[in-house]
């Protein structure tokens, strides 16, 4: 026996995951977006909530989103292995066994839903349970591999967090919660189709029927502009409800103008132009789409501050 360490290292290293690998299984980047939008939904809602209750609710919503991410990674390990963007995820990389991902996903789903029900209310917990089911079963197991409309319908899963945040604070679903849901729902297709435009090889290799794979990039560009235009009234409409106001409307106008201009640019470009600059405009549109969503929810939050209320009072004073 020459060196047992080398032998053990060879045998065990691929199967020995660190704590960070389990954290990666919960898709922390998606989780951060979920935390932010759910927190905004909770803070802009009428009614006060104890800070600890609010913190607990946000933690359990984030945990639910993480559980859905783990279930997604368990089911999609085969296609993740074939895509450059996802090949390093813990399951395809061989760091976490698929069974472990499944167990973690199911365990965290149960804990997060039960704890949200106890911490906040059972309507919020029910919505969280439906969100996990929708993402893991409807989107991941069914739509993703079945139709180019996968991210259009599947986008609903990502749209629920602000609605859940609202329900945590109020106990019911209001028009404002529906509009925040609609904002993310309508934003999802142009966001993911922009990604698919410059990551099409990945989706083709993995045989995921993204619109770029089934109908080509030309059709996808047309879809991006249509959905971006359809997003505008939703974004501005939210500004006319109790969670909106002049600050939100100003931000929304500016962000939508830039977003529509970006979509128009994508629509006018052909593949030769895109190949020539390595999909620069598509990548910029994708990056801006993140800022677009963040900007709208930050503006909702700004409208909920006392300064925005004082600003609104000036408009009332001048009879506007």
């Amino acid at each position: 026996m020459s060196d047992i360490r080398a032998e053990i290292a060879q045998q065990t290293q691929p199967a020995e995951a660190g704590f960070g690998d389990y954290v990666l299984l919960l898709k922390p980047r998606v989780m951060s977006l979920v935390v932010f939008t759910a927190l905004v939904g909770l803070l802009v809602a009428p009614g006060a909530l104890h800070p600890v209750e609010a913190l607990a609710a946000i933690v359990f919503i984030a945990l639910g989103a993480g559980a859905a991410g783990a279930l997604n990674m368990w089911w999609d390990a085969d296609i993740d292995r074939q895509m450059r963007r996802t090949a390093r995820r813990p399951v395809p990389a061989g760091l976490v066994a698929p069974g472990e991902a499944l167990a973690l996903g199911l365990g965290l789903s149960l804990i997060s839903v039960a704890m949200l029900g106890l911490a906040a209310n059972w309507l919020a917990a029910g919505l969280l349970a439906f969100t996990i089911f929708f993402y893991a079963v409807v989107y991941t197991m069914w739509l993703k591999r079945a139709t180019p409309q996968n991210i259009v319908i599947g986008g609903a899963a990502g749209a629920f967090p602000p609605m859940i945040g609202w329900v945590v604070a109020t106990g019911h679903v209001g028009i404002e919660a529906v509009l925040m849901f609609a904002l993310i729902f309508m934003w999802t297709p142009p966001h993911f189709w922009a990604l698919a435009l410059f990551m099409n090889d990945d989706y083709t290799r993995a045989r995921v029927p993204m619109l770029t794979v089934t109908h080509g990039r030309r059709v996808t560009r047309a879809h991006v502009i249509v959905y971006t235009l359809a997003l505008v009234p939703v974004a501005l409409g939210a500004g006319l409800t109790s969670i909106g106001g002049p600050v939100y409307l100003a931000v929304a106008l500016a962000l939508n103008a830039v977003f529509v201009a970006g979509a128009l640019r994508l629509w006018r470009r052909d593949e030769a132009q895109a190949e020539a600059d390595r999909y620069r405009a598509e990548k910029r549109f994708f990056t801006f789409s993140l800022l677009y969503l963040f900007g709208h929810f930050a503006a909702f939050l700004a409208e909920a501050t006392p300064w925005a209320a004082a600003f609104r009072a000036q408009f009332t004073f001048w009879g506007l």
């Binding site: 047992i4 053990i8 954290v23």
Partner: peptide, 21 residues
């Protein structure tokens, strides 16, 4: 040769146990 206590495997497990704790 005995398995050294500071093997990478131990550090990884310690990190995992600390994280769970």
């Amino acid at each position: 040769m005995a398995l050294a206590r500071d093997h990478e495997l131990h550090r990884r497990r310690l990190g995992r146990n600390l994280g769970v704790g």
